[in-house]
Design a protein around this nucleic acid. Structure first.
Length: 716
DNA sequence: GTTCTAGAAC
DNA sequence: GTTCTAGAAC
């Protein structure tokens, strides 16, 4: 059902409606190209109102744009508003151009930050004159304030484009629009509100957003108002220095709302009517959200053109369901976290009654992604499932779905079957069908609620060891804040708090022993640390301290002003993957040694900040703790892998490692895929297209480092 | 882990 | 043409 691709002809009696299309996108997102492409198709009389050129080819004001747009509409033309329009407030005046005769659309060019930055940086002679090195900073800052348009702002149609293909499709749709055509209303192509980059910062900025601006109620055109009226491109350039310190990450931006991602039940292979199913989903969601606070539900479908998603989204909007509590999301439910869309601990599976892998669709995908662990864990809990019920399966931490995505529970749900080819077909009995489907969702949500209750309970219990850790040293100003990560980007770590039951611990230990039996092999170049640890006397040049349990040495290729390694001397303990409970005293000794060095360096230079931790998958053999200052000011930091190995969850803070081993006897390690994620500043989380630009940025960024990391500062 | 370098990206 | 990345070899 390609609702959005087919223009609808208006009744010839009716006067054709005008359209205002408000483009929304960062510099470099392709707004001007979009307009020009549509204009050149020439099927409708369009006017492009561009703030960058409105004053005789030069930049003008918002009110000039409004005037010009209104005039064009009066002449029966349709209008593109070509300015960034990233924030609701910046769009509001333009939305008011709409009336019975004029529809207001939004086209959101929500392309990856990296793409916009690269384009902005390289462009020359762009009308807005946003070029060169400042572009990256500007684009990042603008994206942090991004508020995606909503129908409730007054748009009749919103088209979201997340990549070039989406843009091409949208251009096609508007290009094909004749003077007497209009387009169906609604949202098209939207991802979850969480899918955007830098959500954490955005949320924070919203929360504390400049109290000084809040009082801006003046109607006249004060100098302040004039700046406000300018397109943010300009504002950012003019105010860049003032704004530079504007970003401060705070604990308050962290939210820890349990999320359930679930597929639509019964509407795929079981052929349940989509209209009825979407009603049931929306009603069930409302009922659940009325009972339970502080949870989020996300309906997920892998297809961009999902009929179910658009139906549900439309109905949810009509019912005014808070989009923060319930939303729809296009994505692979088995890869939501690694795809950067959503990190949730609990996912639902549209299961079959035998609770067996295979078939197709979501069921096959989830069983495949979770591996044998899920099959075994499922078998322990249930053999079959009746329609209208669900069963929650705790996922063993050895499951790839747990390790990679942070999923702690899979809830199998069985809905009603309307497919005569499958068992227990209800033969079109939708009275019964709807009831069973309602029961299925109610059972699913109830299971989810009970899991979150358990997890919350365990989180309270688990807070103690951390306090112990912080008592270990006077300089150990470790932040014992919530561990939840701010950006939802690779958030698996915060998911590891659920306390497994005793059976699970036994099971996990067994798996671990099997795993350690197959040791990894190390190349010749990976032996250097091992050799130094075994025979430190021979390496006096690098070694700075020798004890029975460990040696400390200067990293041969330091990635920051101060970067040392504390290397264990225990034979056979090659990496953090080999660590078990018996190694806890060693880990603590190494941590204390690392802290002592950090303290020493801080006495020499109090401006430094340190982090102590391990690489999830080290390149060098022999367990070693990195003690590294957070300036990352070093010519040896040359590539993406270097950066990401210290600035993603690939780097495991020593304190967290100790805590996890104390609790569960092993450490959660994160995937090497993290080494290739996009480059982000460790302070303000802005994205950068390449290493040289990132390094330039971090040399200037003054934002404070996230307190979710275990930092060591100078004690004052 | 680094170095070297082809070729992609700019 | 220059910059930057990523894969192979060590």
């Amino acid at each position: 059902m390609d609702l959005d691709a087919n223009p609808q002809h208006q009744d010839s009696e009716e006067k054709p409606k005008g359209i205002v299309v408000i483009l929304s996108g960062a510099p470099g997102s392709g707004k001007s190209t979009f307009c020009n492409d549509v204009l050149s198709a020439g099927r409708r009389s369009w006017v492009r109102v561009c703030q960058d050129t409105i004053a005789n080819g030069k930049a003008g004001t918002k009110s000039q744009c409004l005037k010009s747009a209104a005039a064009a509409l009066k002449e029966g033309k349709s209008v593109f508003i070509d300015r960034c329009n990233l924030e609701k407030e910046q769009r509001a005046e333009f939305v008011k151009l709409g009336d019975e005769q004029v529809d207001v659309h939004a086209v959101v060019l929500d392309l990856p930050a990296k793409v916009c930055i690269s384009r902005s940086v390289k462009r020359s002679g762009h009308e807005g004159n946003l070029q060169g090195g400042k572009a990256a900073a500007v684009v990042n800052r603008m994206l942090q304030k991004k508020e995606l348009p909503k129908v409730s702002e007054g748009f009749s149609r919103i088209t979201f484009c997340q990549n070039e293909n989406d843009v091409r499709d949208a251009v096609k749709i508007y290009s094909n629009l004749g003077q007497n055509d209009n387009l169906p209303a609604g949202n098209f192509g939207q991802k979850s509100p969480d899918a955007k980059v830098q959500l954490g910062i955005m949320k924070f900025l919203k929360k504390v957003e400049n109290p000084k601006n809040a009082s801006n109620g003046s109607q006249g055109s004060s100098p302040k108002q004039e700046i406000k009226d300018k397109d943010p491109c300009f504002m950012e350039l003019e105010n860049e220095h003032e704004n530079k310190e504007g970003i401060k990450l705070k604990d308050s931006l962290v939210d820890d709302i349990p999320i359930l991602a679930f597929p639509s039940i019964s509407t795929s292979d079981f052929q349940f009517d989509h209209g009825k199913a979407s009603d049931v989903i929306v009603e069930s969601v409302i009922e659940f959200l009325n009972k339970v606070d502080n949870v989020r539900l996300v309906l997920v479908d892998i297809s961009h053109k999902s009929h179910m998603l658009s139906l549900v989204k439309e109905k949810a909007e009509k019912k005014n369901i808070d989009p923060n509590k319930f939303s729809t999301l296009v994505g692979d439910i088995t890869r939501l976290c690694t795809e950067g869309k959503l990190c949730c601990r609990v996912i639902a599976n549209a299961a079959n009654w035998r609770l067996k892998p295979g078939g197709g669709g979501v069921n096959a995908a989830i069983f495949k992604a979770a591996g044998e662990d899920l099959e075994m864990a499922t078998k322990e809990r249930a053999d079959t499932l009746s329609p209208g019920t669900s069963v929650a399966i705790p996922l063993p931490s050895t499951s790839p779905l747990y390790r990679r995505e942070g999923v702690t529970h899979v809830i199998h749900v069985l809905g009603p079957n309307m497919n005569p080819q499958r068992p227990n077909c209800l033969k079109n009995d939708y009275v019964k069908g709807c009831k069973v489907l309602r029961d299925a969702y109610a059972s699913l949500f109830e299971n989810f609620a009970s899991i979150t209750r358990d997890q919350r309970c365990n989180e309270v219990k688990s807070s103690d060891p951390r306090n112990d850790a912080s008592k270990r040293s006077s300089v150990d100003n470790l932040h014992n804040d919530q561990k939840n990560k701010r950006d939802g980007f690779h958030d698996s770590e915060s998911n590891k708090k659920s306390k497994p039951d005793d059976n699970m611990v036994v099971y996990k230990d067994k798996q671990k022993n099997e795993k350690t039996a197959a040791k990894r092999t190390w190349g010749s170049w990976a032996q250097a640390l091992h050799q130094m640890a075994m025979d430190p006397e021979k390496h006096k040049d690098a070694v700075i301290e020798i004890f029975d349990e460990f040696v400390a040495l200067n990293d041969l290729y330091p990635k920051a002003k101060k970067h040392i390694l504390v290397v264990s001397r225990l034979p056979g303990l090659d990496s953090i993957a080999d660590v078990q409970k018996e190694h806890l005293p060693l880990l603590k000794t190494m941590h204390d040694a690392g802290l002592k060095w950090a303290e020493k360096f801080l006495k020499e230079d109090a401006s430094l900040t340190f982090r102590l931790g391990y690489h999830s998958v080290p390149s060098m053999r022999q367990l070693h703790l990195h003690v590294i200052s957070q300036d990352f000011d070093s010519p040896h930091l040359k590539n993406k892998k270097h950066w990401n190995s210290f600035n993603t969850l690939f780097f495991r803070d020593s304190t967290d490692v100790i805590e996890e081993v104390e609790k569960s006897g092993e450490v959660t390690l994160n995937d090497e895929n993290l080494l290739s994620v996009e480059l982000r500043c460790h302070r303000c989380r802005s994205a950068h297209p390449n290493i040289p630009r990132l390094k330039f940025h971090i040399s200037n960024c003054k934002a404070s480092i996230s307190s979710t990391q275990r930092l060591v500062f100078a004690s004052s």
